[in-house]
Design a protein around this nucleic acid. Structure first.
Length: 257
DNA sequence: CCTATTTGACCAAA
DNA sequence: TTTGGTCAAATAGG
């Protein structure tokens, strides 16, 4: 089992990778159709930071955790939740969510471009919810025994709210690439961009660029009309993320500085 | 062709 | 028996 610091480090490295990818996109396709991708990546970066922070903060005050529960974080999106929080069990266990380590995000739109390559392997109607849940695993599960998974589910219709839950941690090369990238390059202008393709994948993969999960038709088809202009909800989503990250849902700001 | 997604079947846990 | 998670055959689509 990995130490919390290790997890935090991995999360930060992922965020770093996403930021790199974002910069790459902004450098090369400044005006193109990649705004959606950029938006998702920006969100991922923010999520990574808050994830890492929550891990570190959580381990920091693991001994003085008495009054931590009653200060429930208000429900501004995106909401962050982790398995390190106490889980109240009611009724049947929801296996994955209660047994293994997970990080959950809520946001007004599903997160597809999070810097990793996912493969969908299932979709289920969930009892209490009106909406289906989609199951993804890392595209390198087979090649590299990467166990990372994620679930995406619409949890609310109006306004639209999606829950993205990550399970396990990436051990694949795509992830390792972030770790080998020099973090503090002396020259911020010159970008030594990391490669996002994978050295072993060329033999049997027709396409080794980041190949993002496409929009599912699982959700109600009419939902797309609810977002009048894409730029509206996208920028508001990032604004929410910034806001949430700024005050940190788990602690008061005094703990951060 | 090849790979990715869809979707009903299957399985394990409760 | 019900439910959530996964498998894998069928299908889509490049």
């Amino acid at each position: 089992m990995k130490s919390c610091q290790q997890k935090a480090m991995e999360t930060l490295l992922h965020g770093h990778g996403c930021a790199n990818q974002l910069k790459l996109i902004m450098d090369h396709h400044a005006e193109s159709d990649s705004s959606m991708e950029r938006e998702d990546l920006a969100k991922s970066v923010l999520h990574c930071f808050s994830d890492a922070l929550s891990i570190l903060i959580d381990t920091n005050d693991h001994h003085q955790d008495d009054q931590s529960n009653n200060s429930s974080p208000q429900d501004s999106s995106p909401v962050l939740e982790s398995s390190r929080k106490p889980l109240h069990r009611r009724g049947r266990k929801t296996s994955m969510a209660e047994s293994s380590d997970y990080r959950r995000h809520e946001s007004p739109n599903p997160i597809y471009h999070d810097g990793f390559l996912w493969r969908k392997y299932g979709q289920k109607q969930i009892k209490e919810s009106d909406h289906q849940r989609s199951y993804y695993k890392c595209a390198y599960t087979k090649d590299q025994n990467c166990e990372a998974k994620k679930q995406v589910q619409m949890i609310q219709n109006n306004p639209p709210l999606y829950s993205t839950t990550y399970f396990g941690h990436h051990t694949c090369q795509l992830h390792q690439a972030y770790a080998t990238f020099p973090i503090d390059t002396s020259d911020p202008q010159d970008s030594h961009m990391i490669r996002f393709d994978h050295p072993n994948s060329s033999t049997h993969q027709h396409n080794n660029q980041i190949n993002h999960v496409k929009d599912e038709h699982m959700m109600s088809p009419e939902r797309s009309e609810e977002w009048s202009t894409p730029s509206e909800w996208m920028s508001s989503e990032v604004a929410y993320a910034v806001e949430a990250f700024g005050f940190n849902p788990f602690r008061t700001s005094s703990d951060l500085s």
